[in-house]
Design a protein around this nucleic acid. Sequence first.
RNA 1: GGCCCCGUCGCCAAGUGGUAAGGCAGAGGUCUGCAACACCUUUAUCACCAGUUCGAAUCUGGUCGGGGCCUCCA
Length: 484
Amino acid sequence: MSLRVYNTMSGKKEEFQPLVPGRVGMYVCGVTVYDYCHIGHARANIVFDVIFRYLQFAGYETVYVRNYTDVDDKIINRANERGVSSRAIAEEFITAFDEDMAALGLVKPTYEPRATEYIEKIIEICAVLIDKGFAYEAGGDVYYRVDRFSDYLKLSKRNMEEMQAGARIAPGERKENPMDFALWKAAKPGEPSWQSPWGEGRPGWHIECSAMSSSLLGDSFDIHGGGRDLIFPHHENEIAQSEAASGRPFAKYWIHNGFVNVNQEKMSKSLGNFFTIRDILQQYDAEVVRFFILTSHYRSPIDFSDRNLVEAQAGLSRFYEALLHAEQMLAGATEETGESTLGSELEAKFREAMDDDFNSALAIGHLFEGVRTMNRLAGTKKFRNKADPVAQVRDLRETVLSLGEVLGLFNSAPARWLEKVKLAGLERLDITREEIEEQIAARLRARAEKDFAKSDEIRDELAARGIELLDGRDGTSWKLNPTH
RNA sequence: GGCCCCGUCGCCAAGUGGUAAGGCAGAGGUCUGCAACACCUUUAUCACCAGUUCGAAUCUGGUCGGGGCCUCCA
């Protein structure tokens, strides 16, 4: 089975064949660093984090580039509002971004370039484009001449006439055509600027990605990713710049992730349903957020809501509880001679799912089935003395863990993770662990005296407050009712 | 207006021609003092209509409903 990916350019799933066999170059548009990241950024970055991990797992030597846009109108505006330099704003939010991504458990890309580190390359591309007639200078600005690039709009499949009907030239711009876009902007007072053949100025938004991708991955590379909203104009313009400048095809596969809605509505500041990653991690475990995102296909829209997150937590807990149980059962196992093929069977299904355009939702479905098998085996009578079941549970546990690693899941020690989620939930329920333990002790006394009425009363009271008691061989433990 | 996407069990969500994965919730059972956990069993013909086909949730056309992009945006 080989990898197939959905390519926005063709609108179809295609056989994945990298330019150089066994190697992949992937460029993903990062963020403009002027504010904290929101749940939408979390999704995009988690999606490409998993694609990166899976490509490596599938044996591709992968170079992953994700940039920081650290010079931009929004950064400048924010800097002016606060009366600090735009560089200070950029630094502040690059640090915040790094913290957020680390909190979400993302691996580091191979390269994380900043636009301002590639000014020379940007100027070079602008000059080449002017040379070739694809761009022109006007009053210190440099614009891309859209009419000259016959493949323009091939990615977004839009219609030039229609687009022009609605396009306007903003005051101060000196465009030949309203559809032309800025490659270089003449400096205004107080703005960060660099010396160029056209005077002091700064790069436009799109050119930086052309500069960084060609510098780090070459003129042609395999995968270019980002959110759906970047298809037009950003990615369309990148294609126009890069292909016109190099005369060679730009990215081979275009991968775009779907949006995040909040309670069925588009997320926006005006609706007040705008959540930063920081907000969310106050309330939910990072792995729950990741799990939630990966249980839908990356191209589908997803709905961020309390109900959905609570469900995700219940699902992830099922994995950790099974992992914990398997660990405990294995700890006392005496048989070492059994055999198992269950792990490799599970891995084959997992690969098949992920090979089909990174279908993480299906892959997780297979993992759930693996968990059920594992639970069933570990629950058989005299389990510890049975050679094959012991080997099978051990095999499944290791496989679930290693495949989970590809998705960035199950990284925590099960007991610790379950404990952490439990304690976090307690704060919300307004009950302390001491209180619960006192109640458990009281109930145990009642049970010892066979006063089951009292015992049940205590249990029901706790249940009403969201705490479920579990009587086990080694005494009574408790857990939170996730749907309480 | 242009381009694009979606409508699968109470909820979430896979499935793009061969007769509907998985999770949550629910029901019955095993276990349990009774429960919970875990396990077993169980719950859909895929918005609607008309076509194509031996055969369609999957293809085509239409209807209804929802959403996105077209201005900065993951």
